[in-house]
Structure formats: C-alpha cells, structure tokens
Write a protein that binds this DNA or RNA. Structure first.
Lengths: 343, 343
DNA sequence: CTGAAAGCGCTAACAA
DNA sequence: TTGTTAGCGCTTTCAG
C-alpha cells in the first residue's frame, strides 16, 4: 500500500540534472537558469516517474501551507452550509489551495478556539462563515493573518466581508412582481432579530416607490412555514378587505406556508395570486407545488469570492482590504409567480 | 502581522535544555529520558513562550500530515452536506486531525481527480461521501491508503462503509405508528432509482408482519412535495375506499405534500390521520404545521464515525477493514403523528 | 539520563 | 548557465 513516491532527487538522477534544477523547472523559475533541453529532459523524467513535489516539504521551506481555513458556526444545522463550502473549495482548488474546515458547532462567538487551532496548523488565510447574516465581533486571531468574513460583517468595520446584497434582492424581487403587473404587494414575515429582514424590506419599499406605488404593507410574522401560513390565512380572509395581488415572503418557508394558505382559501397560484420566496432553499423551493419563485442566497458565491479574495491577496502579497463585497441574489423564476389576473 | 512564532530551539534555550528534550516532552515520550524537573522547566518555558510545535515540520519528519480528506459529490446541491462535514470535522479535531475537503461538484464517478489531488497533498486518510445513498465503483486512488465510504457502498464489497440502517429506520418508524394504534398504514413515494426506498419498504413490511398485520399498501410516487400531494390526495378521496390511519412517506418532502393534501381534504393531522416523514430535512421537517415526525438521516453520525474509524486505524497502524457499519436513523417525534382516533 | 547529529523533501542564495 | 550548500522546524537514533 505505501508505494514510495519519487522525490526531486530521483528525478534529478533520472534526468542527469541537479536537485535544484528540478525544483526550478517544477516551479516555473527555470527560464533564465536551466537550458531548454535540460528542462525538457527534467520534465520528461518527472512525467515518467509520476513525480509530483511534496507539498509538506515545500510548505516547510516556503513557510506557506497553501491551505485556507474555513471556520463555521453550526454548519450542521444549516441546509446552506454545503454550498458555501463547495464554492470555497472549488475556487481554492482552482488556485492550488486546499480547503480545511473547522465547525464550531455553536455561535460565532465560540469560534475563537477553532481559529487558533487553524492558525496553529499554519493555514495561509482564514474565512469565518456564519450561517445567517449578522454583525459579529471578530475574534482577535482573525486579524493576525489574511482573513475575510462570509455572510457576516465586522462590528468594527475593519475586516473585509462578503455578504448578500439583500437590499438589491428585495428590490429586484419586487421589480419582478411589478413587471408582472402586480400593484398591491404585501410583505410577510421575518422575525425582527435577523439583519436580513430590514434590508429586504428596504429594497421592497424602494422598488415600490420607484414605480410610483404607495408603500407596501408589512405583515409581522416569523420565518417558518406556519408563520407564513397564519399570516397569509389572515391576509386572504375576505373580511380583511381586498386581497393583495402578490405576497413577498421573508423566506421560502414562509412562502411555502403562504402557498398552503392560498390553497386552503381556494386560490390558484399564480392565477389568483403570486407568491415570492427568498433563499432558494434546496429541496424546498424546488419541491413545492408550484415551485417557488425566489431570490437565491448566494452561498456558493460567498464561499467562492471569499476564497478568491484571500488567494488574490496571498498570491500578490497585498493587503486584503476592509471592503464589504455585496453579492447579487439571483432571481430564480419557478411557477409561483405569474401575470396579474386583471392585467 | 507576521509575529514570528517560537521554535523548539527557543524553548530549549529558555529552559536550558536541548532541542530533543523539548521534542520528547511535547510528545509525551520524555518519561524514561528526561529528568522530571527538566520536564517541568521545559513545560513552563513552552507555556511562557506560547510555544506550539510546527505541524508542517513534524509532518515532514514523521511522514504524517494528520489531515484527513473528504471528497464529496455535489455537496452544493444537498441540504445535508453540512451535517456530514461538521460531524467529521468535529470528530477529527477531537483527535488532533484536520479535515480537508474537496467537492467534485458532480457525480461520484468524477471524484477521481480530487482523490488524487488530496493524496498528492498527503492526507493520511480519505472519506468519500455521496449525497444520496448508493452503490458505487470505488476510484482506484481510494484503495491506496486508509479510506472509508460514507453514505455509499462499494460495488466490489471490499471497502469499509458507513451507511444509514434504512431497513431498521423503516421498521422503527412503522413500529412508532403501530404503537400509536394505527393499523392501516400506507407507504407513499420514493422513485425507484434510489437505493433507500426498497430498504425502507422492507423495514415497513417487516414491522407490519411482526405485529401480525397484513402487508402494507405501497403507493408509487416520486420524492418531492407535489408527488406526495398527488398521491395523498388520491388516497384521501372518499371514492377510493376507506382512509388509512397513517401514511409513511418516503421523504419529508413527500410528507409535506401529504400534510397539504390532508389539509385540503379537511383532515386534521394528527387527529384524523398521522403522517410520518423520513430524512429530518432541516428547515422543512421542523418548519411545517404541525412539525413532521420523521426518521433522521444520520449524516452527522456518518461523518463522525467515518472520521473515527479512519483515525482509529491510523493511530493503531491497523487495517481499516471492509465492514459496513449501519447507523441508526433516530426517530424524531414532532406533531404530525398521534394516537389513532378509534383506538 | 542527556545532547549532538542526521535527516524528512524541498527551495533559494550563492559559487563555480 | 549550472551545481553546491545551507537551511525550513521537527523527530529520533546513537554516542556520551
């Protein structure tokens, strides 16, 4: 099983060159230093022996591990974690970096230990990713090396972050509804404890105002299916006045509840009413009847951009910057929105 | 920012000892070799300087990276991936191992490249994890070092695997329903292309038989909400004969559809009918009205046990074995199941 | 019981 | 243009 791998020494012997020549060829630094035909012989020898440089040895020498660490708060409880990790790992792999993960299994404040552990392991850069959008006090360890925040922002405002553009998401979702001919659009749900809510509502109202429509009604409710169900049920009751053309839900779960309420009230979606979700929660938004039109949270993109931003800084030896990058939430059109009935 | 870290040399000087003494103390090999008071002085010096051994250097020397790699097929599209990765990373961290990930972003067959890349990076062990339960042809690279499969099994049967015990899950779910007094229980859903379905149905029928009940009816349908809705709608239509006491759904999505159909048909859940899900899909099973009673897929456990099994082999220098470990799917009781009405 | 010496495999500065 | 040398920080053997 062990199958000893060849070393640069072996390749050098095989090609009749020196170890350092091999090293230079493998690292692309050979051009002014090793004759072209020697380079070719080395390359051939390397290929023949299936030589590939030992990353641990080169890491030791260069004082670079080519690993980037991701520490997450309770990835286990989020259906979105996989997307972020996949995005980061794919981006990193594309630049020859390895992605190492540490899940704190608890709130972001408990990540300190894991950050230290990853630093001890000599990761070149660090991503701190939270499962829901929030503002956090950044653990000290993060500041000691290139790091960015994903899906959260620094209370001190001095650390770079990648977060969804929720205002724009709220706006574009609303524009989609308006373009379909809807005029009376009601917002449902989203507990007040989460940062995303006010931003989305701001976008919602901005789009309405831009279209010359009056401010939209905002119905308080939580984030879950039954919150959406109850709120929509009340909204659809005839005694509560005219029905809205469309509802814009704080989450796909709320939207699923609204869908259910519409069905219970005998309303056709989207014939009688359009329902818009938010999150693009896999195995939910794509699994309702009809499928939910929704704004996708860019988890994969956050992972990718976070990794790319760190790697760019690492590879150019530059500072990473404190800017906050806002990522677009793409509109995913499924069946739950359609043209206004009276349009 | 770089803040040079102390080396074993620094500690040795500080404590008036030799580098090797420091090494032995840090690795617990000091007892017959370094005098107790010298050990104490070294330990104190290490603490004072906040010395921690350089894992890359020791890895190079020991030819061990203390990293275990996880390669996943399309983690990005699964809401369960995070649990598995969190389980593995927590278990690994507990033993001083680092978890590195590589997401193939495609089917399991495309993981070869990522396996090779992780091997090149000198991971000590490898986990190949699939997002849905299946039998796969194991890529060659996996056999060249300690590896286990998570959520999939080896077509050749020679590689260790950790998978959910779906037969037992099907049985225990059914037993839960039977214990509630239900007698006529119908299975709904689960396309035929997925391995999990026949196993769950086998458990379902076994529990029925063990209770002296006739074989349960099995309704064909897919895995999604609308599949569950349609199947349940037909099942609940009065013209299709007496209603079942309970339905056992192939997935939480199907169960969500069934819940919706029950509501549409004016049935109370669980008063008139109990609905059982499968998967414990986060942000769905816990977000319906009422919450779904379901069998949890042990993703976190699979990650944890896979990591532990590899690490145990690594740390004892033993073979890893070809056994398949079956993990229990825990019953999660929420509101969608209750006592039979006529009981 | 202790410390010096020899690398692990690689890279980069330097000398030829 | 080439090859030699001196480490990166650690572990482990072996002579004191």
């Amino acid at each position: 099983m062990p199958n000893r791998r060849p070393t640069a020494q072996d390749v050098a012997k095989h090609a009749g060159a020196s170890r350092s020549a091999v090293s230079m060829v493998m690292n692309g630094n050979a051009d002014g230093n090793v004759s072209p035909d020697m380079q070719e012989r080395i390359r051939r020898a390397a290929a023949e022996l299936e030589y590939t440089p030992h990353p641990i040895a080169s890491g030791l020498r260069r004082q670079r591990s080519r690993m980037i660490g991701i520490v997450t708060d309770e990835a286990a409880s989020s259906p979105f974690a996989g997307r972020m990790l996949a995005g980061a790992s794919q981006a990193a792999a594309g630049h020859g970096y390895l992605t190492v993960i540490a899940d704190a299994g608890g709130p972001a404040a408990d990540t300190t230990h894991f950050i230290d552990e990853l630093r001890r392991r000599r990761v070149d850069g660090l991503i701190l990713a939270t499962q829901s959008l929030r503002t956090i006090v950044v653990p000290d360890g993060l500041r000691l090396q290139p790091s960015v925040l994903a899906n959260c922002r620094d209370a001190a405002g001095t650390m770079g972050a990648i977060i969804p553009d929720e205002v724009r998401g709220g706006r574009e979702a609303t524009e989609h509804l308006i373009s379909l001919g809807h005029r009376r659009i009601v917002w449902i749900g989203g507990g007040v404890d989460v940062d995303a809510r006010p931003a989305r509502i701001r976008g919602f109202q901005a789009a309405l105002a831009a279209a010359g429509l009056p401010p939209g009604e905002v119905v308080e409710a939580g984030w879950d299916i039954d919150d959406g169900f109850r709120a929509a049920e009340a909204l659809f009751a005839p005694e509560n006045g005219p029905r809205p053309d469309a509802v814009f839900c704080a989450s796909d779960r709320v939207a699923t509840g609204a869908l259910l309420a519409a069905r219970t009230a005998g309303l056709d979606v989207p014939g009688d009413i359009s329902i818009m979700g938010y999150d693009d929660q896999r195995h939910l938004a794509d699994a309702t009847v009809p499928g939910l039109t929704t704004m996708a949270l860019p988890h994969e993109g956050m992972g990718r951009v976070a990794a790319e931003r760190i790697i760019a800084a690492l590879d150019s030896n530059a500072e990473i910057g404190a800017e906050t990058t806002l990522l677009e939430c793409p509109l995913v059109v499924r069946g739950s929105t359609g043209p206004a009935a009276r349009a």
